[in-house]
Simulated scan of single mutants.
Amino acid sequence: MGIIKKGILGGFSGKVGQVVGSSWRGLDVMRSLPKKSNSEPSNEQLEQRQKFGLVVNFLSPLKGMLEKTYGRVSGSKSKFNLALSYHIQEAITGVMPNLEIDFSKVVLSRGELLGPKAATVAVNTVAEINFNWQANSGTGLSSDDDQVIMVLYNPSKKLHVVEQGSTKRVDLSLTLQVPTLFSGDVVHGWMAFLSASGKDSSTSVYLGKVTVL
């Protein structure tokens, strides 16, 4: 990959000859066209492709959130790329071709902010999920006005429900409405906190799974 320094030609986008121009992290870059391969991919390559596809499909709808909550940027990797790398390496279970995401190992937020204490999830009403947690404000960086982040995922429908900002750490509970089409489905839940400034986040906690009424 080459970086274009805005010389006489400036940056460009698209294919020109044997190179492709594009913008990457605010820089104008150019790459050579990939060479076609006539060889069959190895089992390891096929496995890596399947892992990548699983993780991308799961995380892509959460990209905007992950860019705010997933730790700190490392080198040229964005926060979203850090999340991709972790889940490909640590959150896939099974044997090819029957690979799947291990939701208990999913981490949707990383940071130094104090996480939820004794958080629980329960279903008592149709199309509603109830979350509760215990008070722990004032420890470390934590504050009463830290924003609550709740994420639900329905594997059978491949849909996420995300709630952020309407509830604070001090509230100790949250009732989340879910689509009625979730009725009878199993959903997985995660909880984290984001500081009021949006600069600090906690590492998310997996709350387990429940069946929607």
Rank of each mutant, 00 (worst) to 15 (best):
D171Y: 13
S166A: 13
F131N: 10
S143N: 14
E44K: 12
E100Q: 11
A122F: 14
K35C: 11
K209N: 14
R25G: 14
G75P: 04
K79Y: 08
L99A: 08
S142Q: 05
M65S: 13
I92N: 10
K51E: 10
V148S: 15
V107A: 04
N136W: 04
D171K: 08
M96I: 11
L62N: 10
L213C: 00
L181Y: 15
L113S: 00
G17S: 09
S76Q: 03
T120S: 07
N57G: 12
S60I: 06
L172R: 14
E47V: 05
G138N: 08
V19F: 03
T175K: 06
K157A: 13
R169F: 04
K168S: 02
Q134C: 09
N43F: 11
T93H: 00
S166P: 02
S37D: 02
K209W: 11
M1F: 03
E47R: 14
N57F: 01
H160T: 00
N43I: 13
T211C: 12
E163K: 07
I129Y: 07
N136V: 06
D185E: 15
K77F: 09
I88D: 07
Q134F: 04
M30C: 14
S204K: 09
L174C: 11
L108Y: 00
L152E: 04
R169N: 00
E40N: 15
L108A: 08
K5Y: 03
L9R: 01
Q147E: 14
L213N: 00
R110L: 09
P179Q: 04
G14E: 01
T180W: 11
G140C: 12
Y70R: 12
L213S: 00
I3L: 01
V29W: 15
I149F: 10
T93Y: 02
K199Q: 02
V161N: 01
K15A: 00
M191E: 03
N38I: 09
V95W: 07
S195V: 12
T125K: 06
E112F: 03
V16P: 01
R72I: 15
V126D: 09
G184D: 07
S32Q: 15
L113N: 13
V148P: 14
V161C: 07
D145E: 13
G10K: 05
E128D: 10
G115K: 08
Q134D: 08
V148T: 12
G115R: 11
R31G: 12
D146I: 03
E44C: 10
T167Q: 02
A122R: 15
V55P: 08
P179G: 06
S78I: 07
E90L: 00
S37L: 14
S13W: 02
I92M: 06
S22Q: 07
S201D: 03
V178R: 02
T175V: 10
L84D: 11
P116A: 04
R25L: 02
T211P: 14
S202Q: 00
Y70D: 15
G138M: 03
F80I: 06
V16K: 10
V16W: 07
L59R: 04
V123E: 05
F58C: 09
A91M: 05
F193R: 09
V121Q: 10
D145S: 12
L141D: 13
H87F: 05
L152S: 05
G53K: 00
Q50H: 01
S137Q: 15
Y86H: 04
K209H: 14
S32D: 12
K157S: 14
Q89I: 01
V55T: 03
G138W: 02
K79F: 04
N57M: 09
G140F: 03
L62E: 07
W24D: 00
R25Q: 15
